[in-house]
């Protein structure tokens, strides 16, 4: 078991003929991900990755021809939100958007469509998802992961790798690791991922990594207190981030002020999450939690 993706996931890569798309599609194939199709409008009928992957003009066509059920997006920012909508309208069950720099207004619209269509979106501006030894749907280095029973959810890319590396150092492997992205508007939230991990029998504990800004970690902590039976180790980046480098008055009013690292660490602790003050403690704390 694992969450969101596994060895049966049939992946279509949107933007496969671009340099990012080609590079990461190759890496994903090497990891063992089943990439069944690529999409680049105007290049339908060609093939990519040394002839290994057929290219289609649209996601709909790719789905009809290959039964793809999952999409990963590497298209440039001005077209990324539309790529999400296209994947959702074509009936993809899961869409992962790696692209960084998508305008917020575009994402607001895309989010509405995926909610209507009941599509699960991860990202944008995220490293993607990896289910160890089964499916890598993203840009993370696969070799740092090892099979195990810890779930990882994070807003940040390289901080996810750091956590995985530390888990490895104390002999802990992962079920699935997910970077949900740190943009103002994202598809899958921390609560969504916690719920998936709670329902996954293989996952015994969860590492949750957040950062300053927004309320998502706080909401997740409150949800976890009421609904989670598995131990959670939390870390919030940005304790030393300069104040005032956030959006002006209006932003502060919306968040109610609980969006600093200090406030989030307090709220996580109050809700029974073991919070690491130092990022270097994540591995050890998880080990202790699992032994209890």
């Amino acid at each position: 078991m694992s969450i969101l993706v596994n060895k049966n996931s049939r992946v279509v890569v949107q933007g496969i003929t671009g340099s990012e798309g080609t590079f990461h599609a190759t890496q994903m194939l090497e990891y063992g991900t089943q990439i069944v199709a690529g999409v680049t409008p105007g290049k339908g009928g060609q093939s990519a990755i040394d002839g290994k992957v057929p290219v289609f003009n649209s996601v709909e066509e790719a789905k009809n021809e290959t039964d793809a059920n999952v999409s990963i997006i590497f298209v440039p920012p001005p077209f990324a939100a539309e790529a999400i909508i296209e994947a959702s309208d074509a009936g993809m069950e899961l869409v992962v958007c790696i692209t960084e720099g998508v305008p917020v207004q575009d994402m607001v619209k895309a989010k509405r469509i995926i909610d209507q269509n009941n599509t699960r979106l991860v990202g944008p501006n995220c490293p993607g998802i990896i289910t160890v030894d089964e499916c890598k749907l993203g840009i993370m280095p696969g070799f740092i992961c090892q099979k195990g029973n810890v779930g990882v959810v994070s807003k940040s890319g390289t901080l996810t790798y750091e956590a995985i590396g530390q888990l490895g150092n104390v002999g802990l492997g992962q079920t699935t690791a997910i970077g949900i992205g740190g943009d103002p508007i994202i598809g899958t939230t921390m609560i969504d991922v916690l719920e998936l991990f709670e329902n996954d029998p293989e996952t015994k504990g969860v590492v949750m990594i957040g950062e300053i800004g927004g309320q998502m970690e706080n909401d997740a902590a409150r949800w976890a207190k009421a609904n989670m039976s598995k131990p959670i180790i939390g870390f919030i980046a940005g304790q030393t981030a300069p104040p005032g480098r956030r959006m002006g008055h209006a932003g502060a009013i919306v968040s109610g002020g609980d969006d600093t690292a200090e406030a989030k660490m307090r709220i996580l602790t109050e809700n029974g999450i073991a919070v690491c003050e130092s990022v270097a403690d994540i591995g050890e704390k998880m080990k202790i939690a699992l032994n209890n």
């Binding site: 994070s154 807003k155 940040s156 890319g157 390289t158 901080l159 996810t160 750091e162 740190g182 990594i209 950062e211 300053i212 870390f235 980046a237 940005g238 304790q239 030393t240 981030a241 300069p242 690292a261 003050e277 130092s278 990022v279 270097a280």
Partner: peptide
Amino acid sequence: LDGNVGCMVNGAGLAMATMDIIKL
């Protein structure tokens, strides 16, 4: 920022975590 320990990191989250651990 105002301190004296320069840092260079890849990724914003890890960069913030690095600043935090320097402070610690």
